[in-house]
Simulated scan of single mutants.
Amino acid sequence: MNATFSDQLSKINASTENRNRMRDFVLQHPESLKELIAFGTDLTNKNHHKGVWIIEMLAEHQTELLSPFVNQICQTISEYKNDSAIRGISRVAYFLGTSKMINLTNSQREKLTEICLDWLIRDERVACKVYAMRTLQHFSKKEPWIAEELKDIISRDYTHQSAGYKAVARKILKNEQ
């Protein structure tokens, strides 16, 4: 892995300026995308969450760039433990799952469905749960059982959740009717 690129990723902080600078670097140097994915999916690297921040930004604005790496992302997605990485990777899951430019395999869709259900059940932060709900809602268009499972989880947990969770949950439940 390019030491200077890794060093730069390791040294950034969460400021928008730093994240935008690294995203722009990757867009200007597409050959560094492979290194970014390796950095962000290497869970033994204490700074992997910083790689996830940049992957998240790419997923939001140019999801198709991640197409060659979808399998690698799906293989590690359930292993993240760092809160900052989980939040970011939940957004990546949402953008991958809802992209019209990326065709997920059945296995990839199953992995994303499974982790989204896990995030909803586990004690995760609200942003992660919101992206999980939205991803599952999208998947439920092709898999009706997901809609039922999502409805059950939301109904069971609704009273114990934050206002942000409840707002998204209401929209999802309204759309399911």
Rank of each mutant, 00 (worst) to 15 (best):
E149I: 10
L117M: 11
I115S: 01
A127V: 10
A127K: 07
L150I: 04
R125K: 08
K129W: 03
R109M: 07
C116L: 03
S162Q: 09
S140P: 01
C116T: 03
Y165P: 00
R156D: 08
A127F: 15
E143N: 03
A127P: 04
D118E: 12
K111Y: 08
S155T: 15
K129H: 04
T135W: 02
S140I: 00
D152F: 15
D157P: 08
R122L: 12
S162E: 09
T113N: 08
E148H: 06
I146Y: 04
I154V: 08
L136C: 10
W119I: 06
K142P: 06
Y165H: 02
S155C: 15
E124H: 08
D152P: 11
K129Y: 01
D152G: 12
D152Y: 14
S140D: 01
Q161C: 07
A147G: 09
K151I: 07
C128N: 06
C116S: 08
M133T: 01
V126N: 06
D157E: 13
K141H: 13
R125A: 09
R122P: 13
E149K: 12
R156G: 03
I121P: 03
S140N: 04
P144K: 03
P144Y: 04
E148K: 06
C128Y: 02
I153C: 00
I154D: 07
E143K: 10
C116H: 05
K141Y: 10
I146C: 00
W119N: 07
A167K: 13
H160V: 15
L117V: 12
D118H: 08
D118V: 13
I154G: 13
I146P: 00
E143H: 06
R122S: 15
G164L: 07
R156Q: 15
D118G: 09
